[in-house]
C-alpha cells in the first residue's frame, strides 16, 4: 500500500500547474526516497524531474516501490476539485489500477478515484558533475526575462562569463540583450543574483520551453540555472525544503 498526506495541498497543485502543459503522461514513482517523477515532453526535447521527500509529508507510507502512470491533465482536473487550503491524501493499494485523492478541510472531505495508465518511460541518469556555470537569481526576474525575450524572438542565447549572465534573442523586429550581474543582497538573499562559473559557456535554447519552465515560479522565490560543459541546461526550483522540480533542456546546435 502507498499513502501520503500533504498538509499544504496547494504545493501539489502548484507542481501540477508547473508541468501539466509540458508533459502529457508520466509515471509517479513511490519509494523510500520519496514521491518522484521523471518524464519528457512529447518532442523529447525537455525532461522534468520532480522529487518530494518523505519527510516533507505529514504521513508517508510506502510498503513497496510502485509506479503510478497518470495523465497529468486529468490529475490536475482532480486537484482543482479540492480547495486551496485543503489537506491532500493520495492512496493506492498494491496492484490496484486506480489511485484515490482525498481532500480535507475543516468543513468536510471529498474523495476522487482516478484510473491509472500503463506508460512506457525512459529514465536518464543526469550527471550534475559536468556543470560548468550556475546562476541563482530571483525566479520572478527569470520569468520576466523569458517573457520579454519571447516577444522579440524564438530562441534565447544564454552566455555566462565573468561579467555576468547574458540572455539574448533576435527576431524580425530586432534584437534584445539582457545582462544580469552578480548582486549579493545580504538582507534579502532571495533577491540576490549569484554566479558560479568554472569556464565561460554559451548555448541557445527555444524560448517556448523556457517560458513553460517558468510556470514553476509560484513554487520558489529563487531559480537556479545551470549549464553543463556539454550544454545541457537545467532550471531548478526548490519546493519548500521538501524537494525540487528540475527541468532539463537539450541545446540547439549549429548545423
Amino acid at each position: 500500500m502507498f499513502e501520503l498526506r500533504l498538509v499544504q495541498g496547494s504545493l501539489l497543485k502548484k507542481v501540477l500547474e508547473a508541468i501539466k502543459d509540458l508533459v502529457n503522461d508520466a509515471n509517479f514513482d513511490c519509494s523510500a526516497t520519496g514521491f518522484s517523477l521523471q518524464a519528457m515532453d512529447p518532442s523529447h526535447v525537455a525532461l522534468v524531474a520532480l522529487l518530494l521527500r518523505p519527510d516533507g509529508f505529514e504521513h508517508y507510507r510506502c510498503d513497496r516501490n510502485i509506479s503510478m502512470g497518470m495523465n497529468l491533465n486529468n490529475m490536475s482536473k482532480i486537484l482543482k476539485c479540492g480547495g486551496n487550503d485543503d489537506i491532500i491524501t493520495i492512496r493506492a493499494d498494491d496492484g490496484s489500477d486506480t489511485v484515490t485523492f482525498m481532500f480535507e478541510s475543516p468543513n468536510g472531505s471529498a474523495n476522487f478515484e482516478m484510473n491509472l495508465m500503463d506508460i512506457d518511460s525512459e529514465h536518464h541518469g543526469i550527471d550534475e558533475s559536468k556543470c560548468c556555470a550556475v546562476v541563482r537569481m530571483p525566479s520572478s526576474e527569470f520569468q520576466r526575462i523569458c517573457k520579454v525575450l519571447s516577444s522579440i524572438g524564438d530562441t534565447v542565447v544564454i552566455s555566462v562569463t565573468n561579467e555576468g549572465v547574458q540572455f539574448s534573442t533576435r527576431g524580425d523586429i530586432g534584437t534584445a540583450n539582457i545582462v544580469c550581474r552578480q548582486n549579493i543582497n545580504v538582507d534579502k538573499p532571495e533577491e540576490s543574483t549569484v554566479i558560479e562559473m568554472s569556464q565561460p559557456v554559451s548555448s541557445q535554447f527555444p524560448l517556448r520551453y523556457m517560458n513553460s519552465f517558468t510556470k514553476a515560479t509560484p513554487l520558489s522565490n529563487t531559480v537556479t540555472i545551470s549549464l553543463t560543459s556539454e550544454l545541457l541546461l537545467a532550471v531548478e526550483y526548490t519546493i519548500a525544503e521538501m524537494g525540487y522540480i528540475r527541468f532539463y533542456l537539450a541545446p540547439k546546435i549549429e548545423d
Binding site: 536518464h124 530562441t155 541557445q204 532539463y248 537539450a250 541545446p251 540547439k252 549549429e254
Partner: peptide
C-alpha cells in the same frame, strides 16, 4: 539557426 537536439540525441552525442 541550428538544430534542436532531443534529450535522447543529446545523451547519444555526449
Amino acid at each position: 539557426k541550428g538544430v534542436q537536439l532531443s534529450i535522447t540525441e543529446f545523451y547519444r552525442s555526449a
